[in-house]
Every structure is written in structure tokens, then in C-alpha cells.
Simulated assay, not measured.
Amino acid sequence: MTAPVTRRGKNGAMDLQVLRSFQAVAEGTTVTDAATDAGITQPALSRALARLEDEVGAALLQRVGRVLRLTPAGRVFKEYVDGMLDNYDRGRRAVAEMVHPDSGVVSLAFLHTLGTWLVPRLVTDFRRTFPQAQFELHQDGEMGLTRHLLDTTADLVITSSDPGHPLITWRRLLVEPLRLAVPARHRLARRRRIRLAEVAEERFILLKQGYGLRDITAALCREAGFTPVIAFEGEEVETLRGLVAAGLGVSLIPSSPDITAASESPIRYLEITDVRGARDIGIAWLSSRAVPPIARRFLDHALRTSADRATPMT
């Protein structure tokens, strides 16, 4: 039996773009927007997607209301398209890094709270040595960072504590202090230090379940002999700061250099003395996947920078 012949564009580029457009539409992009991204008209992309379905031999997309959804065959096909495009992109990247080992793209994901001080400092210092290096940056919470590694959408992640995943290697970079944040008009605001046990009756503003800082806060409160009374659960440390400033409760906040201690600040940050008010900050990568050359250089830079400092980066 003769195998069917797959139609190709003159140089194969259009077929690859059609697959990228199919991937985008399958993930929720409209055909109009996908066509704009591809630099073609909407009717042209619609015809290309129809030809793709003819080549595959099954309907891949179906209209549900005003949007297109994957058919069962489309869901199966998309898994292979995702893998193929990922391998193609990684192949191009590997060749580019072999030809230009001091350039390339470092795909880095990191905690939101590290985007104002640690990551900019590491990137700036690194680019002094490797000025041609480019960065693809992602911000996320703890669980999202692990997914970035497992989905290979990031080469490296900077996160707090070891993810504890068998496929991930983690190394400590520094220890970041945690401070008790209280409103400027709080009864304890004039203090510089405090035992965490002293605020056992206060209302706490915490991150939601699943965030590393939430687990650390709960553990420190248990160590201090109480379970925190929760006033609010958020998804961003900046939200915690804002609600503390509004007088709605207290919170354990990372004491990074971006935190201001100015007298006009609506928040005061108190050192904790009865428990270890700190969290580890580290860098992680997939153990089973070779870290690309330029990303390996950045990894070595981050580890060397932390090793060269006797105290945390503050």
C-alpha cells in the first residue's frame, strides 16, 4: 500500500507555521488573531487548517458557540504537534548555542518576590560577562515553578526551598530573612524585635494553600505554639503588604532589599527572635535534561555569586 504524500510548502516553512497556528487555536487563540500572528489573512489560515485536517484524515477542530474546540482526534494530534514543535525549537536553539556558545537564551522562571532585587542583580552581573545573552523570564508561584521545569518551558527556576521532586535538582543560593509586617499604627509598630508568640491572638494575612510562604508561616507559628487566625488568603505577597498597610492584619513577609524602612512607610517590619524567621532561596533544574550551555553558565554564575558572599544578598 502506498503511503499518502504530505503536501509541503515551497520550503516547508508554511507547513510549520500552520502547525503553530493550529497549536495556538487549540489553546484558545482566535483564528483571526492566529492569522495576524502568522502574517496571513484569516481566510488563508482557515483554508490551511482545512488542508491540515485533510492530510491528517480527521476533523481536528469543531465550533462550539463562537469558539473552536479540539475534537477527540484533535486532542491526540495536538500532543504530537506540541512535542514536534518543542523538539524543533530546542534543536534550533542547540545549534545556535553550538555556533555561538556565549550567546543564546536563558529561560528562567522565578518567584514573584524575587523580581525586584535578586533576579535583576543576577542578570545584570551575568550580562557584564556575556553581553550577548538573552533572557526569557517567567514569574510564578512555587507550584507553577515546578511545572515550568517539568514542562521544559524553563531551563532554570529560582525558588524557595527544595521542591522535593525526584526529577529536579536544587541548590541553595542564600537565606532570606522573614519579618513580621504590622501596620504603622499597630500597638507593636515601635518595636524592632518581637517573639512570634506575642502575636498569637492577631489576625494573619496569608498566601493561599500550596504556596511555599504559606507553609513556612504555618510551620513557624506551630513552632511558636499557636495556629494563626486567618483574616485573608491571597496569591501575591504585594497583596499581603497592601492589606497589612490597610490595617487588616499582620503577616510574615520576605525581608528583601526592595522593602523600605522609611518612617513614612505604612508598614513596619519586625525581626522575629523566638523562631528562625527565614527561608531558603535556591536554584533548580531538571536532573535528566542537559542544561543548555548559556543557561549552564548562568547557573554557575548564580552558584558562584552565592558562594562568594558570606552573608545573604541584602
Rank of each mutant, 00 (worst) to 15 (best):
R92H: 09
M143H: 05
A96L: 11
D125S: 14
S103I: 08
G91P: 07
V95E: 03
D155R: 00
P120L: 07
E79Y: 03
D82A: 11
L150Q: 12
T116Y: 15
L156H: 03
L149P: 04
M143E: 05
V105C: 14
F135Y: 13
M98H: 07
T146Q: 06
V119S: 10
Y80W: 11
E136Y: 14
L150N: 10
L156G: 07
W117E: 08
L156I: 01
R147T: 13
V99N: 02
H100G: 09
G104V: 00
G141L: 00
L85Y: 09
P131L: 02
L122R: 00
A109K: 15
V157R: 00
R127Y: 05
Q132N: 15
A96H: 07
M143L: 02
N87K: 00
G141D: 10
D125R: 13
R147P: 05
T124L: 09
T146M: 04
G104F: 02
Q139Y: 14
V123Y: 04
W117M: 06
H148P: 04
T129H: 09
L149S: 04
A96T: 10
D125C: 10
L150V: 14
R121E: 12
L118E: 01
T124K: 00
S107R: 15
R128M: 02
T129V: 05
H112I: 01
V81F: 11
D140L: 10
